[in-house]
Design a protein around this nucleic acid. Structure first.
Lengths: 279, 279
DNA sequence: GCTCATTATGACGATTCGTCAAAAATGACG
DNA sequence: CGTCATTTTTGACGAATCGTCATAATGAGC
C-alpha cells in the first residue's frame, strides 16, 4: 500500500543507490554541492531533501545510460525509485527540469576534471592540452550526458526548468568560462602567448572551446558514414587543438614540441584510473 | 466523415502546402530528390506518394519551427495534415523516422548552399571561407533543424529509422565529406596549402568541419551566461576558422589578407537574398 | 494524546505512441 | 458498366507518459 514498505521497491532503490556510475568522478560533485548548500545552513528536513535529490539524480543518470535520452521519463524514475509521483514532482517540476539537473551534475563533473587536469606539470600550452584531454575523457565516459548538456540549451527545455536550477546552470557555465579565460591569461603572463591586434582573450577562449566541443560532439555521434571513422579517435582531439593553438602562435609550436608525449603523460600521470573504465 | 472531405482540414493543409519556409533554398532539394527517384522510374501512384511525403515534411518543418523540437509529434502532424494516422505511419515508421526525414532535408539544403558558396570568385582559402559563411547562414536561418541533425545521430533515433532513410542519410553525409575533402585537395593543387608530415587531408578536413560545427552549435544554443554573448556573432565563425586555417598554414595567412572583406563580399555577392531573412 | 502545517500518495484526465481490423478506393478484366 | 481482387486509408484501440490535485500520512509543538 505505502510504497516505502514494499520490499521489492526497496531492493531496486538500494541497487540504484549503490550504483556509482554517475559520471561524478571521485565524489567531487557531491562534495561541491553539499558544501555550497551547507554553508547557507540546512535544517534536518532540508538536508534530507538534498540527499534524496542526490539519490534521484543518481537514478536518473543510470536510466539515461541504460535507456538513452528518449527513454528517460519521470514515470520510469518514479517506478524505479522508492517514492511516488508527487514526490518526484516536488523535486523536478518537469521532465525538462530533471534533464537540467542532470546537466548541472555533468558540468560540475567536467569542471572537477578540468581542475584536476590543471595540476599537470608543464608549460601553459601543455596544461591546456591536459584540460582538453579531460574533456574528451568525459565525453567518452558519459557520451549521453555529454550530449545532454547541449540539448538542455534548447529554448523548450530552458523554459520548463525551474529558475533556481537555471541560475545554478548559468553560474556553472560562468565558472567554466572564467576557468578557460584564466588558462589564456596564464599563457599571456608567462610569455608563451601574445595577443595580436584583432584577437581578444575572449575570442581565443571561445575558439578553443568551440574546437574541443565540436570535435567531441562529432566523435560521440559518429556513424558509419562519418569522416570521424577514417581517423584515430585517440588523437583526434589532440590533432585538432594542435592546429588551432599553432594558429594562435601559442609557444612552443607543435613543430617544436611533441605533444603526443604530453598527451600520453597526461593519460598516465593524471587520469590513469579513469581511462581504465573505457577499455 | 472521410477526412479529405472536411473543408477545414483542406484549408489547413493548403496553408501548409503554400508555406515555403522549409529551409530548402531555391527548391534545390526537391529537384534533387525528384531527380534521383525519377531516374529509377516512378509509376503514377509512386509519384503521388513522393509528392505527399514532400508535403508532409514541409508541414513537419513548420511544426518544428513553431513548436520546437519537443513539440513535434506525429499526432500533431496528423491533425494538421489532411490525412489520417495510418497514412502518416505509412510514410514515417516512427517519430524518429520523421525526424530523420527532416535531417535529410536539412543536409540536402546545406549541401546546396555549399555548392553555391563554391561559386565565389577568389583563392581556395577564400572559397572555403565562403562555404563556412553558408554553413553559418543555415544555422541562423534554421537553428532548430541545424541542431536536429545532431540529435538524429543518437543511437535511439537511428535504431528507429527505416533502413532506406538511414542509407540516404549516410549517402548525403558521404557527399558532404567528399565535398569538404575536395576543397582541401584544390588548395593543395593550387599550392596555397602544403601537407605537413603528420597531417592528412582527412585530418584537416575534419578539423575544419569540427570548428565550424562547434562554433555554430554553441552560438545557436547560446544562453545569457554564455561566452558567446561577449563576442560579435557576425564574425565569430570567421575569427575561429581564421585562427584554424592559419594553423594549417593555408595561404594567404590572415595577417596578409583581410578576410573580413572576403566575408562581406560573400554576403553581398552570393547570399544577398538570403541574409535579408534574418534581419 | 491532540492539533495543525507540511509532505507524500496515487487516481485522474489529457496527450502521444504505434497497431490493426474494417472500410474505401483503385484498377484489371469481362 | 459491373465484379472482384488488391492496395490504400481510416480511426478506434491499448499502452505509456505527462502533470495535477484531492486525500492520506507524517511529524513538530503543546
Amino acid at each position: 500500500m505505502v510504497k516505502q514498505h514494499e520490499l521489492s521497491q526497496h531492493m531496486i532503490s538500494e541497487q540504484a543507490a549503490s550504483d556509482t556510475s554517475c559520471g561524478c568522478p571521485h565524489g567531487g560533485l557531491k562534495g561541491l554541492l553539499d558544501k555550497s548548500l551547507a554553508r547557507i545552513g540546512l535544517s534536518k528536513s532540508e538536508q534530507k531533501k538534498v540527499d534524496r535529490e542526490e539519490e534521484l539524480v543518481d537514478l536518473a543518470v543510470s536510466i539515461l545510460n541504460e535507456e538513452g535520452f528518449a527513454g528517460l521519463s519521470l514515470e520510469k524514475l518514479t517506478a524505479q525509485s522508492r517514492y511516488s509521483k508527487g514526490t518526484i514532482y516536488n523535486h523536478f517540476s518537469s521532465k525538462e527540469d530533471c534533464l537540467s539537473a542532470l546537466c548541472i551534475r555533468a558540468v560540475s563533473s567536467i569542471l572537477t576534471l578540468f581542475k584536476r587536469a590543471l595540476q599537470f606539470e608543464g608549460s601553459s600550452r601543455e596544461k591546456a592540452v591536459a584540460v582538453h584531454y579531460s574533456y574528451q575523457l568525459y565525453a567518452r565516459l558519459q557520451p549521453t550526458l555529454f550530449m545532454a548538456v547541449l540539448s538542455s540549451k534548447a529554448p523548450g527545455v530552458r523554459e520548463k526548468t525551474s529558475t533556481e536550477r537555471t541560475q545554478l546552470m548559468d553560474a556553472l557555465e560562468l565558472e567554466i568560462n572564467t576557468f578557460s579565460d584564466q588558462m589564456f591569461r596564464d599563457a599571456i603572463d608567462d610569455g608563451s602567448l601574445v595577443l595580436s591586434e584583432h584577437l581578444s582573450i575572449e575570442t581565443l577562449s571561445f575558439s578553443n572551446w568551440a574546437m574541443s566541443f565540436g570535435t567531441n560532439a562529432l566523435a560521440t555521434s559518429a556513424t558509419e558514414a562519418k569522416a570521424v571513422n577514417r581517423l584515430d579517435p585517440n588523437t583526434l582531439l589532440l590533432q585538432n587543438i594542435s592546429i588551432l593553438m599553432d594558429g594562435m602562435n601559442w609557444q612552443p609550436l607543435s613543430k617544436d614540441w611533441d605533444y603526443r608525449k604530453t598527451w600520453q603523460r597526461v593519460e598516465k600521470e593524471i587520469f590513469a584510473d579513469d581511462i581504465q573504465l573505457i577499455e
